[in-house]
Simulated scan of single mutants.
Amino acid sequence: ARLAAQAEGYREAVENAEPEARTEALAKALTADGYAATARSAPNPQLGEQLCQHHCPVAHVAEQYPQLCEAETEVFSRLLGTHVQRLATIAHGDGVCTTFVPKAGAGKAAHRTGGHHPKTTTASASTAGRNPA
C-alpha cells in the first residue's frame, strides 16, 4: 500500500516529463522521498540508462522482505513504460540500488545489428547468477 501511494506521486512526475527525461524525472521524485536517486547513462549509452538509488529508507525491511524490491522494480517498469532490470540492491548488501532502463527500441536495434543485450556483470558477487530484485 505504501509503494502504491508513492507511485502515484511518481506517476505525475514521469508523465509530465518528455520521454527522454522520464528516468531523470523518476530519480528526482525518488530523491524527494529520501532515496538520493540519480539517472545516468548506462556503460553503453546507446542501450539505455541506469537509475541509481544511493540510499534506501526501507533497506532494513527489504532485507527481510525482498518482495519490496520486486514490487518497486515492477512500479518502475510500469511508470517508465518498458521492462527494467534490477542489477543491484542495498538490501542484498550492494552499495547502491541500480536499475537498468533500456532506451526505447534498444533491444530491437541490438537484434537487427547483431549487438548484445546489456549485461548484468556489474552486479556484485552477492547477486551474481540470480535476480536480486
Rank of each mutant, 00 (worst) to 15 (best):
R40D: 11
A42Q: 02
A62M: 06
F76V: 11
F100S: 09
E12F: 06
V58D: 02
K28M: 00
P45G: 05
L26H: 07
G107S: 05
E20M: 09
Q53S: 11
A17L: 12
C52L: 15
G93Q: 04
V101W: 10
L30R: 10
V84D: 00
G107H: 07
R11K: 13
S41N: 15
P102H: 05
L68N: 05
N16I: 03
T89M: 09
N16T: 10
L26I: 07
A91K: 01
S41R: 14
N44V: 04
H83Y: 09
F100H: 12
G81P: 04
A37I: 00
R22I: 11
A104K: 14
G9P: 11
P45M: 06
S77L: 02
A104Y: 11
H92V: 09
E12D: 11
A13F: 09
Y10L: 07
T82K: 02
A37F: 01
P66T: 06
E49Q: 15
H55G: 01
T31M: 01
A104F: 09
L51Y: 07
R40V: 00
G95D: 15
F100Q: 10
S41W: 12
A29F: 06
Q64K: 14
C52F: 00
L26D: 08
V84R: 02
E49N: 14
R40C: 04
N16L: 13
E8Y: 03
A32E: 10
D94N: 10
Q67H: 02
C52W: 01
R22Q: 15
D33T: 06
A106K: 10
P57L: 07
Q46N: 13
E70G: 01
T99A: 11
Q53V: 03
L79C: 03
P19W: 05
L30F: 11
P19C: 05
T38C: 00
V75T: 07
A29I: 01
E70R: 07
K28W: 00
K103E: 15
R11P: 02
T89S: 13
A88Q: 14
A27K: 06
E63K: 14
A27M: 10
G95H: 14
N44Q: 03
V75N: 00
Q46E: 15
L80C: 03
L26S: 04
C56D: 06
H83S: 11
C69D: 03
T38N: 03
A37G: 04
T82A: 09
V75P: 00
R40N: 11
Q46C: 06
E24P: 05
Y10N: 11
R86H: 01
R22E: 15
C97N: 10
S77I: 03
T82D: 01
A104V: 14
T99Q: 03
R22S: 10
E24A: 13
V96W: 01
C56E: 03
A25K: 12
T23L: 04
N16F: 04
E74P: 00
V14C: 12
A37E: 02
S41P: 08
I90S: 07
L47K: 04
L80Y: 04
V61S: 09
R22F: 10
P19F: 04
A25Y: 09
E24Y: 01
E49R: 15
P102A: 03
V84I: 03
E18K: 12
K103Q: 15
